[in-house]
Computed example of a mutant assay.
Amino acid sequence: MSLPLVHVLRTGLIKYAHGLNLQKFITSKFSEQNENKFRNILILTEHQPVYTIGIRTKNYSIDDESHLRSLGAEFYQTNRGGLITFHGPGQLVAYPIINLKDFQPSIRWYVCHLEKTIIDLCKQFNLNATTTSDTGVWIDDRKICAMGVHGKRYITSHGLALNCNIDLKWFDHIVPCGLTGKSVTSLTTELNRNVSISETTPLFLNSFKQTFNCQLIELPDDETKFYTDHMNLAA
């Protein structure tokens, strides 16, 4: 039995709206095609500064939104799980758009394996990362990777955000993921050296491939352009 195939789509630095458009376009293909023809795609991206809130908007008002926008960041409410977080340059964002029937038809299994992917990646940096009762991946009480996913008809969207060399000061203006008394960290902070997205990405892909027991293949340039052209349509 062959392993599930996942196509890797790299976008570079984009607006958050472009990322939403791209996810929407890819997930729409599932309803248009025979299920067996749906292509699993792992989007790797990096966002311009943006604060996002999930389906729970606890403790954030219009005034809070205006304040965060005044800092020079965008602000979006989405249909992912989780509370408020920040995305910005220096953060590796991964959106796996996959059919869980090709893997394990369980959102709980899926989130657990996303966490295992990041834990394994951190081990490659000799960092002891763990999970807690709170979603995401932690080093002690410092969150290094936030997660918020959405699933419909076993097709996933949204995903994870791993802090590489992101400016952590952006998180000072919020209570990340609604968790008081805890802080945010990055690979750069933990290792006391600059750890870029370009250094981290190959390790992430290797961990993802091993954890999800799948094949990864890079999309060729012409297909990448096909998808990225669509992400610009409604930005």
Rank of each mutant, 00 (worst) to 15 (best):
L205K: 11
K209A: 10
L114H: 04
V184K: 07
L233R: 15
V137W: 00
A234E: 15
H158N: 00
C122F: 03
I107E: 08
I166V: 14
S2F: 09
N192Y: 04
R39T: 09
N21D: 12
V184N: 10
E46R: 01
V6R: 14
R80G: 02
I55H: 14
H47Y: 14
R56L: 08
T11P: 06
L5A: 00
E190G: 00
D134Y: 10
I41C: 01
T78M: 10
V149D: 01
V137N: 11
V6C: 15
L160V: 01
G88I: 01
D134T: 06
R10A: 05
K152Q: 13
S61L: 10
K24P: 04
R193L: 05
S207R: 06
G90W: 01
I144S: 01
L44K: 04
M147F: 07
N213A: 12
F171N: 01
F86C: 05
C112W: 12
T85F: 02
V137G: 11
G181V: 05
S31F: 13
P96F: 02
F86D: 03
H18W: 11
N36C: 08
P220D: 15
V184F: 08
E35T: 09
P4F: 12
H67E: 14
H158K: 01
L71F: 00
L187H: 04
I107H: 07
F208E: 00
P202G: 08
T200L: 02
Q91M: 04
L187T: 04
T201C: 11
T180H: 11
Y154Q: 12
Q48F: 08
G90E: 00
A146S: 15
Y110N: 04
D221I: 08
Y51C: 00
L83T: 00
I144V: 12
